[in-house]
Amino acid sequence: MHYAPAPLHIPDGFLNVTVSVIFWVVTIVMIGMAVSRTNKSLGEKQVPLMGIMAAFIFAAQMINFPVAGGTSGHLLGGALAAIVLGPWAGMLVMTAVIAVQGLLFQDGGLLVMGANIFNMGLLTAAIGYGLYRSVMNKPTGTKLAVAGVAAWLSVMAGALATSLQLWLSGTSNLQTVVIAMLGVHALIGLGEALITVAALSFIFRTRPDLLGEGSASAEGGRGWIIAGVIVSLIVALLSPLASAAPDGLERVAIDMGFIDAGQDAPYEIIPDYTVPFLGETPLSTILAGVIGALIVLGIMVVTGRSLQKKTS
């Protein structure tokens, strides 16, 4: 069977427990939101549709085209799925694809699956859909151009997040992994952008109703624009920082206690031993991960609330 593992699927063993748990918690919360949103907006008919769309993404990843020197480009599909199916459904579909790749083909691990889903399913949907949504009412040409940029950026975001996770786990040297990952994926992302644009323009020509008013694609709220722009900005700011001046990022991580947290003493993420009775035990490691994730989520919720107040 032609099934080529992609370089973004992290196998088990390459991320430490703290990083794995943090991304599992973030991913589970996002999937929980996606499940409750889609349960509300979709009828029972949509579930088989989403299942077959997940199979479509999986199968579409096998369509390749020769680039040069025996290498070939192919689709990852996160941005395309979110644009065509709407952001929440796109996230669920990508989650299913990554789960099956990990469970059935061992392409990506189980403990690190939360991170893999975050990198390839959630980030890509936020960027892909968010940027596309901002030009929803513009002419088709503009929409296609923005979709292309979003597709490229979504791949870069996934690559950047993967490198940062590997670095925080103490698996890779920051500068090397960021430059290598972003370098390779700048090319992979170009293929992704070209295929996404061509596929979308094909759908615009043949079934414009699937992307127009009242379709699943038009359902996402305006909040996605903010989410998409914020995530894109973070990628744009962090990438040069991590590849050109890794000392800066490393300094921030050391000051915040992340380096130790990531590399060998995860319990230090909690200042002053909030859980002293647990000491250096696995339980404490996991607990530290959960607490870290809750902090991240808290920041996200507070930012989201304040943004909502401003817009309403």
Binding site: A59, I63, F65, L75, L80, L194, A198, S201, F202, I203
Partner: peptide, 12 residues
């Protein structure tokens, strides 16, 4: 890449 994209659209 455009040909591959059309194939992906067709498959969709």
């Amino acid at each position: 890449a455009g040909v591959a994209g059309n194939m992906a659209g067709q498959l969709f």
